[in-house]
Design a binder for these strands. Structure first.
Lengths: 155, 155
DNA sequence: TCACAACAGTTGAGATGTCAACTAATATTT
DNA sequence: AAATATTAGTTGACATCTCAACTGTTGTGA
């Protein structure tokens, strides 16, 4: 009985164009899927990690609307995400002085500790995953995936 | 005010390794996001389209377990998906002769018509998205993304 | 100023995904 | 054959996402 490996694609293709597109799609799916195990112990998911990273590295205070725009997700999604993270003690909603519509989202001290720890682990993990690539290959992957994004923005 | 384009990444990076990884990740996110508009009119999402394609191109009858394995998603997810697709009149659960635990999932005639139509539109869309790529670039994208999948399977 | 547009965030319904615990049927082992 | 393990599918709790409709606040133009 043949057991398929995750790095082989689950389809056969008529065209290289199709295979290339699905190869990127499928890699994204698997990255997302596997990232769960990495983030699970402290953050519920990658979404919460991403929010922590945005807050950590932002120069100015971050509103829920900022998060929505940076992550390209609907504002309504941020509400629940921030609710759960607040409940989990990672972040806090602060009232904004001159705009009663907004909140500034800031890390709690618990949140700070976690994201500082994870930031290091994350960078190590990334380097390990990518260790087989050459500098030239990095650049090529960046170039080709950007080209793909442009391709379907135009299509 | 600078408005970011979707094909630029929403972060700056310290390393090319990190940038390359996120470029693939982000391309996957955007592909998934945009695919919604493409599939919406007839199928709820890409997940339902994928199931229809698997059924269409499979040589042997497909069970829910097969779908779970092919799509690398939990079996419990398939239950709801098949429920909704059955309710939408796209597919049907058929009892299996010698195994009362399983169902064979088959297209209804409505489902067949839709997937046949969409299959063509889909192939055209793919060709359009990828039209700027050369044959060499297809191969390189396939090679590099596969290398990435192997990289994090090993990491 | 006052009407109206734009903006920030929330709510509710529904789709997709995870995991753990479950039922019922089938396969295996002793 | 009886006990046990495995398999197929379901259920329920929860996270993430979408969209549309909503509240309340702020900004703007007649």
């Amino acid at each position: 009985m043949v057991k398929r490996n995750d790095f082989d694609l689950p389809l056969r293709f008529n065209s290289k164009a199709h295979e290339a597109l699905i190869s990127v799609w499928w890699t994204g799916v698997l990255l997302k899927k596997e990232s769960r195990y990495f983030f699970k112990p402290d953050f519920a998911t990658d979404a919460q990690f991403n929010i922590m990273m945005i807050i950590k590295y932002s120069n100015s205070p971050v509103t829920q609307n900022d998060l929505s725009e940076r992550l390209l997700v609907d504002k309504s999604n941020i509400t629940g995400l921030v609710d759960r993270m607040e409940k989990g003690g990672l972040i806090q909603r602060n009232k904004v002085e001159n705009d009663r519509r907004s909140y500034h989202i800031i890390c709690t001290s618990k949140g700070k500790k976690l994201i500082d720890k994870f930031d290091v682990l994350y960078e190590k993990k990334v380097q390990k995953i990518m260790s087989a690539f050459s500098e030239k290959e990095y650049k090529e992957l960046i170039r080709l995936t950007k080209k793909l994004r442009i391709g379907f923005a135009d299509s």
